[in-house]
Write a protein that binds this DNA or RNA. Structure first.
Lengths: 339, 339
DNA sequence: CTGAAAGCGCTAACAG
DNA sequence: CTGTTAGCGCTTTCAG
């Protein structure tokens, strides 16, 4: 038998055409759902496709149509669960619009990020969404602002690259105001993320809100970390706990992982949360509700952040010269028992 | 000025050739680092490349060379931190060998997984590594065992698809033996993952080890969940805690997330871990060492699992008819304070 | 409604 | 060392 579903070798559109006794143009037409093909012919072609086990070579199609229908999402750290819901939001919008979304783990490394952008430059992907630290994006924005990409969560408002994120300054202020309303005056900030926009913005929000409350912040309450690890948070708490009379009664950590570490650290130093010290986190990752005590934190609309980023990108793809705006989405303070 | 680094329009290899006053073949040669080009010519070409802002169109190159240098990794759940280190292992090997690795979040959905496999079929990726549940892989293995892919963690030994994983049966037995050695006789298993091979294997390992220890397992000690959520673990613990005299003194959960939930659940029911009930998890995810009490768990060599998977795939890519073996890697019981 | 022919942008013989 | 010439497998005018 010469007919088999198993493609013995590479069967091309020409083979299918020959089998069906038509031209390659006609095969292409039925493959692409064009209507100007007689029904009988269409069936003959479909039959030939099936019996030959033909698979379209998308590489060739992409070369011809000059698009890949691939979108890239760059995340600085695949292990950080914070990104999961955002990615899901991006993926669902991409998929609904006939695009594949593929993830790139850049490790927040400018060189690796750059190499993934080369996929864009080389036409292997149509567009990208970048979640990398603003500092890492910066160089990119200068040399590649013409490329079809948008920034998500982290961005440089001045870079001319479309973005979506939240108002970190306001969110940090909300946390401080929540804490002062509960009577706290000695509030520590455990900050992190060199090169991250959110770090700078939350610090500013913290400072401004303290000032508005007439509180002079003690420099010892501000801890700048270079990690989001549980360990780092633990060490920060130990440091704070050793402050004696100047010890803060509340601590605001810029991520939930850090906040969980902070709680452990205080507990290790013999303090109880929230009685001796209140702890607030940021992000509302899944585990936040399941630690003891459950963590009070700020939640970002992660799914929506992702969906919006994807929509901005698609808009830019549809019309490269469209004015795509920067958009800020609302956050929400989730009150649980740690503060 | 007509010379500018900014590519006004799409500049192709022909444009560069014209600029440099050579043929496209010569441009291609210097682009691909062939040595048979006179130094002066090479420089002229490089100069033309730079001044024109030329970027090779990889789509065209890929079509011509019939490879994309793209590898896909399919994960069932991007939000599960368990996969992070594995993915990093895959990525590092891929990168060292000149491949890009891109991630696909399949949501353990056979249809979505299938659509990603279409990228392979359509030549848009050269190979894939699949971390999806064995049950989801099954259909794939039947229709696509000829495609260049390997299974990681989850696999069907009989499918003829190369795989790498651990000996889950042995690992579960190790946990039970560890617990019986500490005097436990009433040991619960909180299992999960319909369609996951690891679930079936760990259950078998648990049963066999109990039998070897002369323990008749109480059916009430076996809880089958359909989730790995903290919540699910919490509910399982509540159920176990309500068992009265038949209440187990130890619980083995097949994932750390579940185990953390279990600890919370027992605590919520007024029991202390490990004094009233010992808890063991599986995976050794980052947070496992940072809960209270720190979780005793089984660690898998995640980075190595990923690296090995990538190497198997590369071997298969280099020689499509090579016999690629299935490999099992060693696990390790990490003793902390929860059991 | 269908076919012939011209490329998409690149690489790889094959000549010289 | 360099240029000419064929395509890779597909889509898309342009004719008929």
């Amino acid at each position: 038998m010469s007919d088999t579903v198993r493609p013995r070798e590479e069967v091309s559109i020409a083979d299918v055409a020959e089998r069906a006794g038509v031209s390659v143009a006609t095969v292409s037409r039925v493959l692409n759902g064009h209507t100007n093909v007689r029904e009988a012919t269409r069936e003959r072609v479909l039959e030939a496709v099936a019996s030959s086990g033909y698979r379209i070579n998308e590489l060739a199609r992409n070369l011809r149509t000059a698009e890949s229908r691939l979108l890239l999402t760059m995340v600085p750290d695949f292990g950080n669960p914070f990104y999961a819901a955002i990615v899901r939001g991006i993926d669902s919008v991409a998929r609904q619009n006939g695009y594949f979304m593929l993830l790139c783990d850049t490790g927040a490394d400018p060189l690796r990020e750059r190499s993934y952008f080369d996929l864009l430059r080389g036409r292997r992907a149509d567009g990208a969404i970048c979640l990398d630290p603003a500092a890492v994006q910066k160089a990119l924005a200068e040399e590649s602002s013409a490329l079809p990409w948008v920034a998500c969560c982290e961005f440089d408002p001045a870079a001319g690259v479309p973005y979506v994120g939240i108002d970190n300054h306001l969110a940090a202020g909300d946390v401080v105001r929540y804490l002062t309303a509960k009577g706290h005056r000695r509030i520590a900030l455990i900050n992190s993320g060199h090169g991250y926009l959110y770090g700078r913005q939350r610090l500013a929000g913290y400072r401004d809100a303290l000032k508005d409350a007439g509180i002079e912040p003690n420099p010892a309450w501000l801890i700048e970390l270079d990690s989001l690890d549980y360990d780092a948070g633990e060490r920060a708490a130990a440091q704070l706990a050793a402050l004696g009379d100047a010890r803060p009664t509340a601590a605001f950590a810029v991520s939930d992982t850090l906040a969980i570490g902070v709680m452990n650290g205080f507990r290790g130093a013999g303090f109880s949360v929230p009685d001796d010290v209140a702890v607030v986190g940021f992000d509302d990752i899944a585990v936040a509700a399941h630690v003891d005590p459950p963590l009070t934190t700020v939640s970002q609309p992660m799914q929506l952040l992702g969906e919006t980023a994807a929509e901005l990108l698609l808009k830019r793809l549809r019309d490269p010269r469209a004015e795509v705006p920067g958009v800020l989405l609302p956050h929400r303070l989730i009150e649980r028992r740690s503060a």
